[in-house]
Write a protein that binds this DNA or RNA. Structure first.
Lengths: 330, 330
DNA sequence: TTGAAAGCGCTAACAA
DNA sequence: TTGTTAGCGCTTTCAA
């Protein structure tokens, strides 16, 4: 009985050839005489040999793995991003390694630093201010960023948040809504853009925007903020939420408070997560094509890794998905 | 200008010590004279040296990473499992590397084989029949399995699916429901247990169970099956679904068909995903404590890796969560 | 307290 | 067509 796992040396010895021969055969970088190939094959089979990817990577400098970090995998938006990225990775022969930073910056850095040397490149979904992201560049690995970097020189994928927000607000205006509120999540980079889009549309009509800020981009936070919004002095008749989770939470709480959506208040969110369509009323949302974003980021990263030119910023377009949570005013 | 990343040799040279000294210092396995330590520290700082985890792992045989494979990360049940596992991993200084097998067995094997040599152990959520899982054992890595293995000798974490199903069916019985249907997903290991629990409760009352089988454990599949269930000759007044996604899809389609839940039919699911509470009516569900399952699996794996004894099978208990999708019959 | 030297499992010139 | 040799970046005896 030898050691637990067979090495290339065991194979070489058993087949009566050199390790170099085995290596080349295994990696199909060279052909050998039928006799030799057959011998190696059968020995590999017999010993259950599999090459050690780490040893391999140490030499080649390539791992055929890509890291992706997201903020919270229980948020369907991120789950979709992962889906898209995973598909493209598979198609190109890469393994996607996912890490969940749980919205914690320290954890994020720690995880990414640990990950960076184990992968050929990374896709980063982060909330950390760009000024504090120096360490990411210092990792010196190909990377793709979600968002629109100002300072940081990294290829990026973004969605057109501002236009999406503008579109949905235009729609609400056309439905005759009068009093607008925005439930934001100022911790996110994208919050500004979304709010700006809403403002852009309202300003043109000389309308005000009442802003509320959620403590997290979650349904629970949306529920929590509901009473402050609905039971204030001048409750809105239209509410734009930073994302669908907030909107879902808000709607649930609103119904508990005895308000009707959309009769009393129209509600919209962002991301178009599938669960929005199971809510009642079904949620109107701005679809930012999460899955496309993931796929685009992965394509960009792989292009970068393989030395192909990739444009610095890819913008995915936004699309308004109308459902029952918004309705025209009489 | 040297090569892009500093190695231990660069540090040793710059500090005028040997690589062995640097190694021991970096890993805190030995103390040195203040002068030497200070010199090494400053050089490390200056060069931005970080040790290469791969080279390290090659020697020590440990990676401080754990792999987790799930079937579909967009399913909130799996997302919760990941959450639980991630927390525990972090707490023990491990990095969780997640892979999504997308319900594809070939992909699963490929991903896991690639992963196995890069991690200290793996947690596997699989749909592959145990007979075809020989390769998993052959990987010869510590592993924890979700479910109740019969043949395979692997530590495992399971939930009490049968009891959960029994409980919810007992509840439906107590509410006076007469005609029962089960929307299953026979592809899953757990389907049998859940169906058995339902049958166990019904048999005691001499009641029949009408079984339908979904093609996937998704909301879309639930929608698809709805008409066959509701527009049949003897439509049920109570439906137990394999999971919440199927139940959510079913409820949506039922409403489109003009049926009322729970007046015409009571609906229950499994997993207690958060989105069940945003549906209308809110979904009654059997909570299998997904997050606990992930945490328990990770604890068990880490115990195994670190050589501590762990019991073979951990069973997480089930809990009935009553909401508005079920109601008593007149 | 410090360092020399031997590898971990593998690939990549280069020789034969 | 096959093999020799020199490492990749690091840890770990063992000796100084």
């Amino acid at each position: 009985m030898k050691k637990s796992v067979a090495t290339i040396r065991d194979v070489a010895a058993a087949a009566g050839v050199s390790t170099a021969t085995v290596s080349k055969f295994v990696n199909a970088t060279q052909r050998f005489s039928p006799a030799v190939e057959a011998r190696i094959s059968s020995v590999i089979e017999e010993l259950g040999y599999r090459s050690n990817p780490m040893a391999q990577s140490m030499i080649t400098g390539r791992t055929k793995a890509i890291g992706l970090s997201v903020l919270d995998i229980t948020n369907p938006h991120y789950a979709s991003v992962v889906k898209g990225a995973n598909r493209v990775a598979q198609d190109h022969g890469y393994t996607l390694l996912l890490v969940d930073t749980e919205e914690t910056p320290e954890r994020e850095r720690q995880l990414l630093e640990a990950l960076s040397r184990r992968v050929d490149g990374m896709i980063v979904y982060s909330r950390t201010p760009e000024e504090e992201l120096g360490w990411l560049l210092a990792l010196d690995r190909p990377a793709v960023f979600f968002g629109r970097p100002d300072l940081i020189k990294l290829p990026a994928v973004a969605s057109d948040d501002q236009l999406g927000a503008y579109m949905v607000t235009r729609h609400l205006l056309s439905q005759g809504h009068q009093r607008y509120a925005y439930m934001g999540f100022s911790n996110s980079r994208r919050d500004r853009e979304r709010m700006a889009g809403v403002r852009e549309a309202l300003d043109a009509q000389g309308l005000e925007l009442n802003v509320f800020d959620a403590e997290a981009p979650t349904a629970a936070a949306g529920e929590k903020l509901c009473s402050a919004i609905l039971l204030g002095r001048q409750p809105p008749d239209a509410l734009v939420c930073f994302n669908d989770l907030l909107a879902l939470g808000f709607m649930k709480a609103a119904q508990v408070l005895g308000f009707r959506v959309p009769e009393d208040i129209s509600v919209v969110g962002f991301d178009n997560i599938q669960f929005g369509s199971f809510a009642s009323p079904a949620l109107t949302s701005v679809d930012l094509h999460s899955e496309h974003m993931g796929a685009a980021a992965m394509r960009k990263l792989i292009a970068t890794i393989e030395g192909n030119q990739a444009e610095a910023l890819t913008v995915i377009n936004a699309q308004l998905v109308l459902r029952a949570s918004t309705a025209a005013r009489a």
